[in-house]
């Protein structure tokens, strides 16, 4: 049973004006419950447009979005319900913080769900724990935080609604390597704890290679590849042709392969390559 499904989804911006632009064309895709999907594609390929359809923020120009088999744009109530079930963290979410305190900002979503005060408090603390926001920051103004902290608070604001599916649009853009890694770890931890479906949009091949189980590649508003990271990253040439690249590790593995070193060509994380190389050296991965 897929949780999220799109059928021939098409979106045209500014239709009928001289600035008309088709951002999505006939995108059909299924995301099963609990799956961890990475969405990649060059800038302007329609990733953000696509994810904004999944919780009913953008009405499709053509096609449908189904959540557990029901069209989310059928009526107003459904669309609102989809907002809470599918949590969407926008690109640069730190610019949407508005409350006087961090606590109140994280509580905005749960408050809109009309939860009780106790329940809200519980969810805020839980969400803050997931993203690594210490409770000592709760009474600060969001504007006083650093960029990375703001990002975490914004992500917590969505997690606090306990969505069944969590969609993150470039959550690591503009962060330092440690910040990126730690946010990705937080997301993985959230998924382990809740079993939520996760859709991660990213420019960084390294990021998605590290945690996604399935990769979907967008180009010019179409899905051009869909498969496991090993399958997708084995098509290095095709990826380069659409302005993407393979992770550095895959590149190294490919070069080694070309030099005659017998490592599997489908390495895409550091541990995989390390194990492959160690296996070559002496069989045992003793390091």
């Amino acid at each position: 049973m897929p949780t999220i499904k799109t059928e021939a989804l098409t979106h045209v911006y500014s239709r009928g004006s001289p600035f008309e632009q088709t951002a999505l064309e006939n995108v059909t895709m299924e995301i099963a419950r609990g799956e961890f999907v990475g969405l990649i594609g060059r800038t302007g390929s329609g990733k953000s447009t696509f994810v904004q359809h999944l919780n009913g923020l953008l009405p499709p120009t053509g096609g449908r979005v189904l959540l557990d088999g029901a069209d989310i744009n059928a009526d107003k109530k459904r669309r609102r319900e989809a907002r809470f079930r599918v949590g969407l963290v926008f690109q640069y979410p730190e610019y949407q913080l508005f409350e006087e305190t961090v606590y109140r900002d994280i509580a905005f979503g749960p408050r809109n769900m009309k939860l009780s005060g106790r329940e809200i408090g519980e969810r805020v603390r839980e969400a803050a724990r997931f993203v690594g926001v210490p409770e000592t920051l709760f009474d600060k103004s969001p504007l006083e935080l650093s960029g990375g902290q703001k990002r975490r608070v914004a992500i917590a604001g969505v997690i606090a609604m306990r969505p069944e599916a969590l969609i993150l649009d470039e959550p690591t853009a503009g962060l330092d390597p440690e910040g990126c890694a730690s946010i990705l770890r937080n997301i993985a931890a959230y998924r382990r704890a809740t079993g939520a479906t996760v859709l991660l949009v990213s420019h960084s091949m390294e990021d998605v290679a590290r945690i996604a189980e399935r990769l979907v590649v967008f180009d010019g508003g179409h899905i051009v590849m869909d498969g496991s990271p090993a399958q997708v990253f084995s098509q290095a040439e095709a990826l380069r042709a659409i302005g993407l690249d393979v992770p550095v590790v895959t590149e190294i593995a490919a070069r080694l392969h070309a030099l005659g070193v017998v490592v599997p060509a489908c390495c895409y994380t550091v541990p995989q390559l390390r194990n492959a190389v160690l296996a070559l050296r002496g069989g045992a991965a003793d390091a």
């Binding site: 907002r83 969407l88 926008f90 979410p93 905005f108 809109n112 969505v158």
Partner: peptide, 26 residues
Amino acid sequence: ITSAQKARGANFETGRLTERVKALLP
């Protein structure tokens, strides 16, 4: 920003006038 707040369940469309004005804060 409107989209981002809607994604968190903000409601800009319905409600009494005072509620709607308050809803604009985010």
